[in-house]
Simulated assay, not measured.
Amino acid sequence: MDPSWSPAPVVPLASQPPPALVVDQPLPDQLAKGLVVIRYRAENLRIVPVYGPNALDVSPRIGHIHVTVDDAPWHWADASGEPLIIQGLPAGPHRVWIGLADPTHMILDSKTLDFVIPAR
């Protein structure tokens, strides 16, 4: 079996490795246009829009991400699994924090990206 494939999400797993978040730096060509595009993926967790304590029993494990921009006191949740697209940030340095969360919003892993939007 190819180790890069995830288990089929149709059978409960007896044990699961810990979830992990993999995040790419923003795409440089897009940053030059003032657009932040961040690709990410979850390992050992499927990103789906299902929430609440009963969803903790789903196997293989499910969850979503939380995103905070520039250390704001608030964040948003996303369960699309699609790249993050952020626009309208001014030129200069920025920080994006991405947290991998379980269905009850407990953070399982996180990554922080620092980048600069160049002046145009």
Rank of each mutant, 00 (worst) to 15 (best):
D29A: 15
W74S: 15
V37Y: 11
V37K: 12
R41G: 07
L113R: 11
K33L: 15
H64W: 07
P18K: 11
G81S: 06
V10H: 11
D29S: 14
S15Y: 02
S110D: 12
S80L: 10
L31P: 08
W97P: 00
V11T: 15
A42S: 15
P53D: 13
D78Q: 07
R95M: 10
W5V: 09
A55R: 10
W74C: 01
G34W: 04
I65F: 09
L21C: 02
R41F: 05
Q30L: 15
P18C: 00
I47A: 05
H75V: 00
D2I: 03
L89N: 07
I98V: 12
A8L: 13
R46I: 15
D78G: 11
V22M: 08
P118M: 09
P3K: 05
P90F: 03
R39V: 01
L13V: 06
T68C: 08
P49A: 07
P118Q: 07
P12E: 05
G63M: 06
P60A: 05
A72Q: 11
P26Y: 05
I98Y: 02
W97R: 13
V50C: 03
E43H: 07
R120T: 11
P18D: 13
V58A: 11
D71S: 12
V50W: 08
D71F: 04
R39W: 09
P19T: 03
I62M: 03
L35Y: 07
V69S: 01
L100R: 06
L100Y: 02
V50D: 04
Q25P: 06
D2N: 15
V58W: 04
P9M: 04
D2C: 06
K33Y: 02
Q16G: 03
S110M: 04
V96D: 03
F115M: 05
L31W: 07
L56T: 07
M106A: 14
P93C: 00
W5M: 12
H94V: 09
A119L: 09
D114I: 03
Q25I: 00
Q30F: 13
L31D: 05
Q30I: 01
L35C: 09
V116W: 00
I85E: 15
T68W: 14
R120P: 12
P103F: 09
A77R: 13
Q25W: 00
P9L: 02
P12K: 08
P19W: 06
P17Q: 07
S110P: 00
R41Y: 07
G81E: 05
V50P: 00
I85N: 12
L45G: 03
H75T: 12
D24L: 09
Y40F: 14
D24Q: 14
T112E: 14
P18F: 00
Q25H: 05
E82K: 14
I107G: 00
A91F: 05
W74D: 14
A101V: 05
Q87C: 02
P26M: 06
P26Q: 09
L27V: 15
A101T: 12
D57S: 15
P18R: 12
R95V: 13
G52L: 07
W76S: 04
D114T: 13
R95N: 09
R95W: 03
D57L: 13
P9V: 08
P19H: 02
